[in-house]
Amino acid sequence: MKIGNIDFGSKPLFLAPMEDVTDIGFRKLCKRYGAAMVYTEFVSADAIIRSIPSTLAKMHVNDDERPVGIQIYGREVEPMVEAAKIVESFHPDIIDINFGCPVKKVAGKGAGAGLLRDIPKMLEITKAVVKAVNTPVTAKTRLGWDMNDLVITTLAEQLQDCGIQSLTIHGRTRSQMYTGEADWTLIGEVKRNPRIHIPIIGNGDITTPERANLAFENYGVDAVMIGRATFGRPWFFKECRDYIDTVQGAAQVLPAPLTIDDKIDILEEQLRINVERIDEYRGILHTRRHLAASPIFKCIPNFRQTRIALLRAETTEDVLRILEECRSILKGLQVENQ
């Protein structure tokens, strides 16, 4: 699969852009453990133009996380064009346009998934951004505004005609937000459309390696984008990659799974990267939502209190102490179950 001149190989896995989640520390680890493509947190075109420091900081990328995309959102043509030109100066490999964010503060103001209610403007923005930059432009959207307005099969062709070089489709409507189950049938229909020649990337409810493999097998997508399932486990990409390669016969040797020690070490490294990159207070803030959400801790008895302690920890020393306590408990449970 290729976007522009970037070759991602067969059945690549992408990290979804997520606000307050996909910072550099997390992206680097996801890349190391098998993500073929990572994205920054999505950024507002208006904030980019106003040079808001926190927004500009989100757009800094490192060479060791490439290929990397910067995702922008907005509701008017001129600000989106101006923002895209500024984004290009940060040298991303891809500029992605967000037409899928369902939250009220974005969609309610006519940006993100809000543009599913104004397709002509969505297409106008897309054409203008593609024309304004040399970087490959891609887009991400949903099936439609609601179940009475499932426009994606037609919209995919229209966006392709605007010049985008790939399209990511989340298998829900805006009205569904993140509830219910993602419906991949229309994603598959878009991919099977003989008039579609750009890569189609599927997104939604990829919570297990088996589901990642089925997305390729059942719906024929060119890539799978994974979001919430990565919280607290950047190694999820390795688990999916290993499973897919084994099932497809691409793995010559059965890959060794990561141990509890490996996973705790990864979480501790994520903490250290963020603390060194920003400062102790904000580095912990960036990391502890991942720590509290990590599925490896779910089998710890009465983990709720430990989770609260993680969320309240204010020093690196305190976080590391809690993680080491969890390591000891998990290894003890592992011995008991042998």
Rank of each mutant, 00 (worst) to 15 (best):
K2E: 09
G4D: 02
S10R: 13
K11H: 11
P12A: 12
F14V: 06
L15V: 02
L15M: 00
P17T: 06
E19A: 14
T22N: 05
G25E: 10
F26H: 09
L29A: 08
A36M: 13
E41H: 11
F42T: 06
D46Q: 14
I48A: 07
R50K: 10
S51Q: 15
I52Q: 07
I52P: 01
S54Y: 11
S54I: 03
A57W: 06
M59E: 10
M59V: 12
D64N: 10
D64L: 02
E65N: 05
E65L: 06
P67W: 03
V68H: 09
R75C: 06
R75I: 01
E76V: 06
E78Y: 11
P79N: 11
A83S: 13
A83R: 05
I86M: 06
H91M: 13
D93Y: 12
I97E: 06
F99E: 09
V103S: 05
V103K: 03
K105F: 01
K105E: 03
A111K: 03
G112L: 07
A113D: 04
A113V: 09
D118S: 09
I119D: 04
P120M: 13
T126L: 11
A128N: 11
K131T: 13
T141Y: 03
G144Q: 06
W145M: 09
M147F: 10
N148Y: 03
L155D: 08
E157T: 12
Q158H: 08
L159G: 04
Q160S: 07
C162F: 08
Q165P: 10
T168C: 08
T168H: 01
R174I: 11
Q176C: 08
M177R: 14
A182G: 13
A182Q: 09
L186A: 13
P194Q: 06
I196G: 02
H197V: 11
H197A: 08
I198A: 02
E210H: 12
A212D: 04
N213R: 13
F216N: 00
N218G: 11
Y219S: 05
D222Q: 01
V224S: 03
R228F: 02
T230P: 08
W235D: 04
R241K: 15
R241F: 08
I244A: 01
D245A: 00
Q248E: 14
G249V: 03
A251D: 01
Q252K: 15
I260G: 00
I260C: 12
K263S: 12
I264F: 12
R277V: 11
R277K: 15
I278H: 14
D279N: 10
E280C: 01
Y281N: 03
I284C: 00
R289L: 00
L291A: 00
A292E: 04
A292S: 09
S294M: 10
S294W: 11
R304H: 12
Q305P: 08
T306W: 08
R307S: 04
L310N: 07
R312G: 10
A313W: 01
V319D: 07
I322V: 10
L323F: 08
L323I: 05
E324P: 03
L333W: 00
L333N: 03
V335N: 10
E336Q: 14
E336H: 14
